[in-house]
Design a protein around this nucleic acid. Structure first.
Lengths: 128, 128, 128, 128
DNA sequence: GTGGTCTAGACCACT
DNA sequence: GTGGTCTAGACCACG
């Protein structure tokens, strides 16, 4: 299991960590009932302050994806994949809505937006 | 000329103001050589403190879109439309890049992204 | 008699006007005892607000280069050339001192400064 | 590290601070990757309000000399020395151009200017 | 009335 | 404790 964050990203580190972990759950890398690494280890893996890692885990627990048992560790909830999948769609739509709002604020032509996004994606693939 | 800011938006007020003004310049509502409203008036229009409005105008000046003359007022630069258009493209690409990065972080299928964005746009149009 | 100001210059317009007039006195274009143009005419010549022209004349009077007689006009003082010449040297040294201080603040190598100034002058001549 | 500002200087305090910090970077006192003092500390050192210090740091960030991370601090950019050196040359030429323009306005003989500047520098050294 | 600077003090999100 | 934003109110030089 590997975690890679981008410190320069405007998205806070703990939020990036949340998304990474949710993704692992979504992809089944972290299976329901399995134990996730302790906060200290997460912090080391993500090269992040312990508090930052703890905050991410708390967010996951608040979202019901994970369940912390004092003294034993934190475990992936049984219905985590379902929740994760549902929340992925929601999160994605919310993200796109924010993108649309910002683009409108910039004065862009919204019709062109999907094409431009596709072009941008193609650019990134080429850069690989 | 009207200005509407959303105080709850994560984008700071002064940045929202910058974008609104840049858009007016881009659309030619504020023509090159014309005078933009004094900072004090902008502040009233946008319902923000004078300093906040001043900060936005100073950002515009730093971007070369506008030229401020103490005691006389602030004027739209002659090459403002060109600069504004160029910076719109940059801002838009930066926005889309951020969107792509966040979507990847969420674990989304990037291929689907443009289609989903288009669908989201259509939804918003229908809601009108 | 012609006056040319640069509105974009950081030096305020009225100060530029003062220097232009002082120079005219220094060069004898405006002779001792002669009448200088009324503020209104100066304002037109310099393409400046009347208040700005008035301010410049007041500054000249405060410096003793000029003497205003209500109802009759403003006249160049008898000792104006002497004063103007003396103040030129002072003003020049003050200017250079300011330049040195700023260059030091910037972290520049002061030894190089005169040579760089000479180079800059040569550049400007070539541009002619 | 010490900071000394002159409140009576026509150059605004925050600009003076910018120059002081840029100089430290230029001279390598603040090395690339190193952390600069927190805004609150800078404010105390420079005896200015926190906002004034913050404004200076933000200007440095806008110039790409420094990178601010909320909650972590502000760090000298890797390419800061290069940028700083480049901008020093520009700033110096701009300063000398302003000096030339003002001297011309004063009615001075521009040929003499470099020599006079050198003399003024020698005077200052003797005064030491 | 114009833009610009500065202070003071508050609140926020992030580490 | 870190940087960032915002308000409020003052003062300044310039036109």
């Amino acid at each position: 299991m590997q975690i890679s964050l981008r410190p320069s990203d405007p998205l806070p580190l703990y939020r990036q960590l949340v998304e990474q972990l949710r993704r692992q759950i979504l992809l089944g890398i972290l299976a329901p009932g399995s134990r996730i690494p302790p906060v200290r280890d997460l912090a080391v893996m993500a090269r992040v302050n312990r508090n930052t890692a703890a905050r991410a885990v708390q967010a996951l627990e608040a979202a019901g994806l994970v369940c912390a048992r004092v003294g034993r560790g934190t475990f992936v909830a049984d219905d985590a994949p379902v929740r994760a999948r549902a929340s992925l769609g929601e999160a994605l739509d919310a993200l796109l809505d924010r993108t649309i709002d910002e683009a409108r604020l910039l004065g862009a032509d919204l019709e062109e937006l999907p094409a431009r996004l596709a072009a941008r994606l193609a650019d990134k693939e080429d850069a690989r």
